[in-house]
């Protein structure tokens, strides 16, 4: 890989943003491919531990969306 691509760990709520992401896909909207999406039952479950865990394992960014 010649160019650096960021890895952004993305926690998406099953009911909100995951649906939005799905809809974005169905609607064929273009968006950057840097996200590693983790679907969670509720974004309230995302604790500081998970966010720090992502950074510890080398994530370049973390995005939590509910």
């Amino acid at each position: 890989m010649s160019e650096w691509e960021p890895k952004i760990i993305t926690f998406l709520c099953n009911w909100c943003s995951y649906g939005a992401a799905d809809l974005a896909g169905v609607s064929r909207f273009q968006y950057p491919p840097d996200f590693r999406i983790i679907r969670v039952p509720c974004s309230g479950r995302v604790s500081p531990k998970l966010i720090l865990g992502a950074f510890r394992h080398g994530a370049d960014g973390v995005w939590v969306s509910g």
Binding site: A20, D22, A24, F29, Y31, V64, S65, G66
Partner: peptide, 28 residues
């Protein structure tokens, strides 16, 4: 710019795309 939080409803695909672009740009 590393950590982002957002609030997007399941009907807001356009907002999702918009925020995704912002997040990606910030991290890049």
């Amino acid at each position: 710019g590393r950590l982002h939080f957002s609030w997007i409803s399941s009907a807001e695909a356009t907002k999702f795309v918009k925020v995704a672009k912002e997040v990606s740009a910030a991290v890049r």
